[in-house]
Design a protein around this nucleic acid. Structure first.
Lengths: 197, 197
DNA sequence: GTCTATATAGTGATAGAC
DNA sequence: GTCTATCACTATATAGAC
């Protein structure tokens, strides 16, 4: 299973370094900044070495996506179980660290292989989120579809993040206040001070 | 004012054709498919002619954005005044024709000139939307910030469109049902059957 | 207003030496 | 596992003929 799409071992330090630098480049300059030569320069290796570990750029992006998705899924599950799930979701989706997701969303529009993998991950995450809501459904929860709550909550959080990145901020404060007020009403008035880190 | 960024008259049929083909390419294959050679081939002209009308690719994208923004703004204002504004906004933001906006959003991440112009347009649209809500604020409207309602309504609609384009559909039906139910409660139970065209 | 021809630089990817 | 050298192709942009 390791034979034809990739050379080198999965645990190779160089390979990990290339994945790290790819994530950094995507976050700091966008996915378009990631190329064989540029990535090699950032990592301090020869361009051909990038293609030794990742036969194509698709393979590189897919590897970044996979490493992220696995790690983040576990983090999500932990948070979903540690506090009211909708509130956990709101905080998770507003985490600036999730900017990489936005970048992958854009990338998915232009690379079919990434699109397929990204969509599969997104559905997997969403399924787990809906299940967490249903699992912990308490009396305070309104009589609406858990799936709709998940989509609306994460969707608004992500739109706010995307717009902010473009310098669009009109109405953002009011929207954050509205959502956090609604969460407060759903879950009672425990502190909702969101700390991102 | 026509001198140094562009040659050719603003009403030139060839220029209009290039703008049309750019929009079509962006919608069908994404902004990355738009280049001097490709666009020229699609329009059936020589590559250099593209650069005769648009000195740089930035100028081309900016011209597409401007032509769209002007036309759509008028359409938005008409719809905002012809029916309950939040409902108008929901329908407007779900119009598949707005997929071009998503493409520009992605493009804005990678072209500073486009980012600035796009952000200015977005703030202008949002301002007009909030004003329409306030202008027609009726008894049925809930006691929440009009700006928050605008951001949430348009944001959810746009996220649904973006996800659909990637093949992510989990929870979408439920979300549409939730929003349309809320709109019904806000505005009474007049027909909400959405017709996109 | 439209074209050909070209300049300069970039890209992803491969072969093969070490 | 890492390198140099190179292939084939694309990019934006310009100069100047018609």
């Amino acid at each position: 299973m390791t034979a034809d799409r990739r050379r080198g071992s999965e645990s190779s330090p160089t390979r990990q370094l290339l994945l790290d630098e790819t994530e950094r480049l995507m976050l700091e300059e966008g996915y378009a900044a990631v190329g064989v030569r540029r990535l090699a320069r950032e990592a301090g290796v020869a361009p051909a070495l990038v293609l030794y570990y990742f036969k194509t750029l698709d393979d590189l992006f897919l590897a970044v996506l996979k490493r992220r998705a696995d790690g983040e899924f576990e983090r999500q599950q932990r948070l979903l179980d540690s506090k009211p799930p909708l509130q956990a979701l709101w905080e998770l989706s507003r985490d600036p660290g999730l900017a990489l997701i936005t970048e992958f969303m854009a990338l998915a529009n232009h690379r079919e292989a990434v699109r397929v993998a990204f969509a599969a991950d997104a559905e997997r995450y969403r399924k787990a989120q809906v299940e967490a809501i249903m699992r912990k459904a308490e009396s305070g929860l309104p009589d609406v579809s858990p799936a709709a709550l998940v989509v609306a909550t994460t969707g608004i959080a992500r739109i706010l993040g995307m717009e902010s990145a473009l310098g669009i901020t009109g109405g953002h404060e009011e929207t954050v206040a509205l959502i956090e007020d609604l969460l407060k009403r759903f879950y009672g008035s425990s502190s909702l001070a969101v700390d991102h880190d």
